[in-house]
Design a protein around this nucleic acid. Structure first.
Lengths: 221, 221
DNA sequence: TTAGTTATTTAAGAAAAAATTAACAATTGA
DNA sequence: TCAATTGTTAATTTTTTCTTAAATAACTAA
């Protein structure tokens, strides 16, 4: 579902978080300090980093700043882990680029609902070509390859397809689709999605996208 | 993207720069003093050197002079790193052959945009002729060869073509085109791109460049 | 089965984006 | 400096894409 880094100097916390996150279907890497994490980010970018604020050597805020200084990392969601005793206003006020914070002691249910909320905002597909059976999506070239044939899709159709294909089999709710493809400000009706779905199905095959009534649509693997 | 040397006596600075440059896709070698750097230049020439001015033993200006004494190194871009307290006029006045300077403390974003600007100047010089089917682009001579016929293109048209042709099939967004061909400071309208595209198509053929509505343009392989 | 809800389909019109044209400004070079 | 070339803008037209509306079909649950 998502690729998540956990950075905390205490092993217990790392294990707790890892266990819960994996249960929830995510891929997880843990690090016991900031520099390990930064190094790892160079080779593979996670979707989200859970970052302890209080750590020896390099604190979470520094790690966050180091990350956010690089535009390539702007898509990574940072969520701080703070001890309850720490000053919230301080955390909230730091403009280091964090997206949220969760205070310890960590309640797994709270953690998970926060993570879900954060990931929902993201979903911004990575730039790599998503490949799925006889269908290839090339984000750089803005085109779709179906059985070797190149198909040019209009912008919205392309983005819609790219979104759905970013997580095959995952059902995207209509609201999420609107949020991701149209953006939160723009207000368009639900029918608009249908029409685009229809055009997509015409172009890339009826079976590739299926409807989940009452919920939304999904891309079939 | 480019091969960059970093010369600074402080390890922290070296690491910071290296980290950011690598993130940006460059190949980086670091040196803690001038003579190490000079020796390395003999075996492989970098595209750009980030050179601290204040260093024990041999300062950055001496290094620069030593480099520029050898005509073989004239293509290497030198960018000085200076402490804020140092006298700018002194730096600016030194005719040692530096191309730019960045003052400490270094803000990675500033650094990167400078580096981009410097490299943009360079890339134009040393990228060899891009060849694509019956079309050859000669960056040194600023002309295009179409079916053996030489076509002289105006500067902007040439740069636009050269940019698109540097990555055939890749869709360049309008904003990127503006950034690369016109530069980030200059503000020109989107229609300007259209007009240049049109002139290009007239001269080198309609099919060579295609439009991706809502996104930008691409050069067809 | 049937009412109620939700999705599909179609066609048409609105909106957005790009192409085109022509005129004007800036630059260059003689 | 003047003429020619190059670059930019503005206005208009054309094309493409997006959205809506309305009728129909499909599904769901009582």
């Amino acid at each position: 579902m998502a690729f998540i880094f956990v950075v905390d100097d205490e092993e217990d916390i790392r294990e707790l978080l890892k266990y819960n996150l994996i249960q929830d279907g995510h891929r997880v890497s843990t690090f016991e300090n900031g520099s390990q994490c930064l190094k790892a980010v160079e080779s593979e970018k996670p979707d989200l980093i859970l970052l302890d604020v209080m750590m020896p050597m390099m604190d979470g805020i520094e790690v966050c700043e180091a990350l956010k200084n690089n535009p390539e990392n702007e898509d990574i969601i940072i969520c701080f882990l703070t001890a309850r005793s720490e000053d919230y206003s301080q955390i909230a006020g730091l403009e280091a680029g964090g997206d949220d914070y969760i205070s310890k002691p960590i309640k797994p249910k709270v953690l998970m609902s926060r993570i879900h909320a954060l990931l929902r905002r993201k979903v911004k597909l990575d730039v790599k070509d998503v490949i799925s059976q006889e269908l290839k999506i090339n984000r750089e070239r803005y085109l779709v390859e179906k059985d070797g044939m190149e198909i040019q899709l209009p912008r919205k159709e392309f983005e819609l397809l790219a979104l759905l294909a970013s997580r095959p089999d995952f059902v995207f709710k209509r609201e999420i689709i609107l949020e991701q493809v149209w953006g939160s400000e723009v207000v368009v009706g639900d029918r608009t999605i249908d029409v685009h779905i229809r055009k997509l199905r015409e172009k890339i095959g009826e079976h590739t996208i299926s409807t989940v009534k009452g919920i939304g649509y999904k891309f079939n693997r």
